[in-house]
Amino acid sequence: MKSKWLGARALDALTWAVVALMLAPIIWLLWSSLHLPAELALDGEPSEGLRWRNYVDLWLQVDFFNYFANSLLVCGAATLVSTAFAACAAYALARFRFRGEKAVSMSITATQVVPGMLFFLPLYMLYRHIGDEWGVAMLDTRHGLVFLYVALFTPASIWIMRGFFVSVPRELEEAAILDGCSRLGAFVRVVLPLCAPGLIATATFVFLLAWDELFFAWVLTSSPEVQTIPVGIRLFINQFQHRVDLMMAAGAVATLPVLVVFFAGQRYFIKGLAAGAVKG
């Protein structure tokens, strides 16, 4: 009994140590955002109190609202479209048997083992071709980023949703069809409400990945009117390198929506990942 008690306490101590290690950068971020740059130096003198003015300067001296609004618009649109596509595709894979089903499943899985960076050159050439031949601008546009994020994050979202659809008994749909619903009506009125946790988990998954994405947002956009928060913070390094406090404040503000979304959908997010991993 004593050895088990010691083992449990050691595991608790290790857990808290890992939590403290993960929270340390966030605490430093918040602390640095409330102090002057000179105070962050080794020989800096402490101030009389916290400098909340840094957050005011962030919105006044830097066009941070534009980056923030772009991120909300792009990530929100990508989340809605990707979740809708994933729900439809996952339902088809979970309920129907058709020729090429295994090939489709393997293709979706294969996209997850290829580094996204390898898609850059073909994607850039495709965007240039669409702009030159069809007259539809894709480079340096919000809808270009939305299209990219939907393509990148939908495959993994399909597998998250598929686990939920498999867990819904077919008899419920059959009963709805017997009562007069079409297949689409049964899907919308019966299956989707039962799979609401899966929808929330998928939307959370897509939003978190899209919000933090930097590489494609950096190389596919060039004007501040369409650039997102990760790009804006990256530009701060060159434009405001002497204002470390503003960069830290920007990082804190950028982290806030991510924390809100994650904690709001945490229970469904973890449940969705587990369902997508263990359901047949």
Rank of each mutant, 00 (worst) to 15 (best):
Y149P: 06
H143R: 01
W5C: 03
T204I: 13
R99T: 14
D57T: 11
H129R: 11
Q227R: 09
A217K: 02
V113G: 04
A249C: 07
F269D: 14
S222K: 07
L30I: 13
R183I: 09
V74P: 00
R51S: 01
C195P: 01
K271S: 12
G7I: 01
T111Y: 00
F263G: 05
W211K: 06
T228N: 07
L118E: 13
L126K: 10
A103N: 04
T111G: 02
A8I: 01
A86R: 05
A84G: 10
Q61H: 13
W59C: 03
A264G: 14
E225W: 00
Y268G: 03
L126E: 13
Q239K: 09
H129E: 11
K2M: 08
Q227W: 07
R267K: 14
E101Q: 13
M117D: 08
A275P: 04
S82Y: 00
L30R: 02
S107F: 12
G272S: 13
L23G: 05
L208K: 01
A10R: 09
I177K: 12
L14W: 03
L139C: 12
I158H: 04
C195E: 06
W159M: 13
L42T: 11
F119Q: 05
A41K: 14
E45F: 13
S182A: 00
K4C: 07
Y55E: 12
L60Y: 05
V74D: 02
A89K: 03
A217H: 08
A17E: 00
G49W: 06
T255W: 08
L209W: 08
P115S: 00
V168L: 13
M161E: 08
V278K: 08
A94I: 04
A210P: 01
Y149G: 01
L21E: 09
W218L: 06
L208W: 01
L148C: 02
L121R: 07
Y127S: 01
P155C: 03
E133M: 10
L40Q: 15
Y124M: 07
I26V: 08
Q227T: 09
L72S: 03
T15L: 15
T79P: 14
I233V: 12
V62G: 00
V18D: 03
M125K: 09
I229E: 03
F68A: 11
F215H: 00
G163M: 12
E39R: 15
T255Y: 04
C88T: 04
P25Y: 10
W16S: 09
R243I: 03
L121Q: 10
L21A: 15
A24M: 15
S47L: 13
R51G: 01
R183P: 05
L194H: 11
R183Q: 08
A110T: 05
F98N: 14
F236V: 06
V81C: 04
W31C: 06
L209Q: 01
H143M: 05
V261M: 15
V260R: 09
L214K: 11
S105C: 03
L273H: 04
Q266E: 08
A275M: 12
A274I: 11
W59H: 02
R170T: 09
K271H: 13
I200V: 14
I229C: 03
T228L: 01
T202R: 06
V62M: 10
H242M: 09
N66Y: 08
I108S: 07
A8Q: 09
A77V: 14
R51Q: 07
L93I: 11
M22W: 11
A252V: 15
E45N: 04
R142L: 10
V231C: 00
C88K: 02
